[in-house]
Structure formats: C-alpha cells, structure tokens
Design a protein around this nucleic acid. Structure first.
Lengths: 143, 143
DNA sequence: TTGGATGCAAAGGGTTTGCAAAAGG
DNA sequence: CCTTTTGCAAACCCTTTGCATCCAA
C-alpha cells in the first residue's frame, strides 16, 4: 500500500517524502477526516508538519488516486482512503449522523445519467436529509 | 409571492423589510446565485445593502421555506427560489456545466433510504462526475 | 547537483459576530 | 415604544500562495 505511494509518485516524477507517507497513513488510520484532523493525527504521531503541506499533499494523493474526498458538512471536506470500498454517504442534517451505503443504492441513478454520457462520481456523493430518529423527535415539535 | 414573504414572516413574528423583499426578489430573478451574486443584484437594483444582511436574510428565507441552497462548487453555495420545480443537479467536474434533472431520476434512491426512515432532501442533491463531452475529449489525453 | 517539497508567514475567499443606530409593527 | 433588523467593522475558519530553504533522487 505504501508501495503504491512510492510507485505512483515515481510514475509522476514526484518524490517520496516522510510527510507524504505520514499523511497517507493518517488518512488510512482515521477513516474519514478533515485536513485539520489529518494534521493533528500526523503531529501526534511524529514530527511537526505544516498545514500547507497537508493541503498540498492531500491534493497530490487525490490526483494519484490514493485518497478521495467528499463534503459531509458545509465546513471542511472529508478525506478517506481509496482502499475502502466505494460507498455513498447519507448525512442527517439534524443530528449530523453519517450512514454509509453500498454503491448499488444509487445504481439506477448512475445508469440513468450514464445514458446521457454522464459518469457519476459515486464516492463523492453525499445525500442530505433527515434520519428516522430525528424525524420521530420532530413529530411533537412546532414547525 | 411576495405575499408569501409577508405572511410567513408575520407567522414567525418577524418583520417585513425592504431588504428582505429585495433579496428574495433577487434570488427569484437570478435563478441560481451565490450570496455574492445576490448582493450585487440587490445593489444594482436599489439601495445599498450590506453583505451580512444578505447572509442573514438568505438564512431566514431558507427557514421560511422560500429559498433553498445547494453546493455546485467547492466555493460559495448556490441559492434558488423554492417556486422552481424541485430538481437535482448534475455537475461536470471538468467543465463545470450544470444539468438539471427531474426528481424522478433519483426516486429509487429516495425510496431505498425512505425504507430506513431517511428522508432525502432532493433539492439539495448535487451529483458530481464527468459529462459526455469532457469524457470524449479525454480519450486522447494522457491520464 | 538540482528540481521538487517543505515551512513559514502573509494573504485570500467566504461567512459570522458584537454592537450601536435605525426602523417595523 | 419596544423589539427586530441593519450596517459596520472586526473576527473567523479554511485554504492558497510566495519565497527561501531543504532534501530526495
């Protein structure tokens, strides 16, 4: 896996640095994390890394196809390793809970848009709404 | 329509102000617009309105159910009138082109999540990917 | 050796906030 | 009148950039 990093960097004429290894590792360990969280993780692990290096590195890693990002809030994006199975996120606007779904859930949509030549980026998809629990709590409250 | 505004504001014990009328009108006229574009539109129309008033007002209008927003880029959100038919957006990551689709396109997904008690906010949905035109252009280019 | 990578600090875009003045009902 | 709104300016969060230094290859 880290071999992937070395290999892919080389292919692009880019360099393997400790920071890049640490940042990729942090994303893999954290599962889902914002640039800020990645920075904190890396710093807790070892050396002192700069925030701008994290931003630049996440961009490189995404170009190399090793990580992906999606927007689960109106704030910072969330990065995750591309080694995870591709999945779709459902985000509750009330309680912020995030549920992962198999890509099959959106297959009909993907096929429909594919008919128009549009290739959906499933892993980037974030579906917002209100989860069952929160809807239940709303029954009694004023609108 | 503006009657909606007056009525809904009153219901909530809020006040009808020229700024609120102008901002709602601007969103309706622009179709899809960022807070910045709304501000520019309002200023071109009449008085001098402040940016923070635009932010605060868009928030109020959204709570009143008169406007909605979605994220069509990594930058500022896009607001549109709730009088438009509900639709889903497909955004090409390469050329930034935005295509609107009928809600039916995502009906299977909505139903699937509804089975879990999750109510999808269809109007907020932005589906990212690569459109047919851009994919065609890619055929000859290096990865 | 040498171009790519990093750290630092400053700048930048977008949004929020505190507060006093203005104004709707 | 009294409470909501507004404008203003400062603060904020997140991200990007310029530049000198550093270091992987």
């Amino acid at each position: 896996m880290s071999d992937d990093l070395a290999a892919r960097l080389r292919e692009q004429g880019l360099r393997l640095t400790p920071q890049r290894e640490l940042i990729l590792r942090a994303v893999e360990d954290l599962g889902h994390a914002t640039p800020d969280e990645v920075l904190a993780q890396v710093r807790s692990q070892v050396s002192s890394v700069n925030a701008s290096t994290v931003y630049r590195t996440l961009e490189v890693l995404e170009e190399l196809g090793l990580v992906r990002h999606t927007h689960l809030s109106d704030r910072a994006p969330t990065y995750h390793s591309n080694r995870e199975h591709e999945h779709v996120h459902a985000v509750c606007r009330r309680c912020r809970a995030v549920t992962s779904y198999e890509p099959e859930v959106v297959a009909p949509v993907v096929e429909r848009l594919a008919a128009d030549g549009f290739a959906v980026d499933v892993g980037h998809l974030a579906i917002f709404g209100v989860c069952g629990d929160c809807a239940a709590k709303d029954v009694g409250s004023a609108t």
